[in-house]
């Protein structure tokens, strides 16, 4: 009744980093509810998850093996069954493409509440209180739950990973029964980018209107290669056709949370700032000294991005060599 269930999302057969972040959070929650951290995973060719998830605090891992493809209804069916059986007080999923699609369906199936994309939480006695951004981070709300379990999706890259030396968890088999979903994935088209998704990236190099042409993103790609970053864009750059919509950072794009955000030729419109202001360190490169981006940047360079970015690439290459 007081356990905390983490849905450990996988990339292939390995847990995503956000799964470890959720287990660490779950340990703190379980300490207040007086329960255990349990985990569930669904996938194909899975092995050793008891040890992998146990290290981060899970004491029991329920594994549905032999499910090759994601299915909203199928995953909701499996997890709803497990939740009815285990009766956890809190259920955490990643605020990822999969978790965002799945969690609301699961909550509605159970007739309980959901807080999505949480960036923090506190315990009010044994009650879980979630903190989440609204208006893409222009404000935050605290959400309490009126039904059990409380379900939340957790934004990747925000909550810290705690101890990693836990004992291997016991594994239990979960029936890989999707319950006859009405929708099926018939094909997956791989993305052209081999970089981490912006929402998971630890470093991001982003281009704005100042980039002037699609082909000029090459200089940002080169810097990104050297410092191990993903490449983003402002709405202005996307609307001008310089960048793909999957690269858009901001209130109508992705909200990102990297350690380092390098904004190149981005003026810093309010809706862009909303999507990247929680980056730990912001560097701005812009010709216009009045650009609002400098009001949030930790380090600002006033200058032409076409000169400054290649210089930065060369400097970083030297430093990281």
């Amino acid at each position: 009744m007081s356990n905390v269930l983490v849905f450990a999302e996988l990339r292939g057969a390995e847990p995503k980093k956000v799964s470890f972040e959720m287990l660490s959070a779950a340990k703190q929650i379980a300490a207040a509810t007086g329960g255990q951290v349990i985990a569930a995973a669904i996938g194909d060719g899975l092995s050793g998850l008891g040890a992998k998830l146990g290290a981060y605090g899970a004491t029991k891992v329920f594994v549905a093996n032999g499910v090759a493809k994601y299915s909203t209804e199928g995953f909701a069916h499996i997890l709803a069954g497990l939740i009815k059986q285990e009766n956890p007080a809190v259920v955490l999923l990643g605020a990822t493409a999969q978790g965002k699609d799945l969690a609301p369906r699961l909550a509605a199936k159970l007739g309980v509440g959901l807080a999505s994309d949480i960036v923090g939480f506190r315990m009010d006695g044994n009650k879980f209180v979630a903190k989440r951004p609204v208006f893409a981070g222009k404000a935050f709300t605290e959400v309490t739950f009126l039904a059990a379990p409380a379900i939340a999706t957790v934004r990747p890259n925000v909550l810290p990973i705690g101890e990693t030396n836990g004992a291997a968890a016991a594994e239990a088999v979960l029936a890989a029964d999707l319950g006859g979903p009405k929708a099926q994935i018939i094909e997956i088209v791989a993305g052209v980018s081999k970089r981490l998704d912006l929402t998971e990236a630890d470093r991001i190099v982003s281009g704005g209107r100042g980039i002037k042409d699609k082909t000029n993103f090459k200089i940002l790609e080169e810097l990104a290669d050297v410092i191990g970053a993903s490449v983003g864009a402002s709405r202005a750059a996307v609307d001008a056709g310089y960048a793909d919509v999957s690269m858009q950072v901001g209130q109508t794009g992705k909200t990102v949370n990297p350690t380092l955000y390098v904004a190149c030729g981005i003026s810093g419109a309010i809706q862009h700032l909303a999507g990247m202001r929680t980056s730990k360190v912001i560097v701005a490169i812009n010709k216009d000294p009045e650009a609002p981006i400098f009001q949030v940047a930790d380090y600002g360079i006033i200058g032409d991005l076409f000169e400054a970015v290649p210089l930065m690439t060369a400097e970083a290459k030297k430093l990281l060599a």
Partner: peptide, 20 residues
Amino acid sequence: NKTKVAGWSLPAARLAGKVF
């Protein structure tokens, strides 16, 4: 309702850093 918004807050102001 299954959830309740208990309160609102604004993010901490981000201080401008060093401009070169």
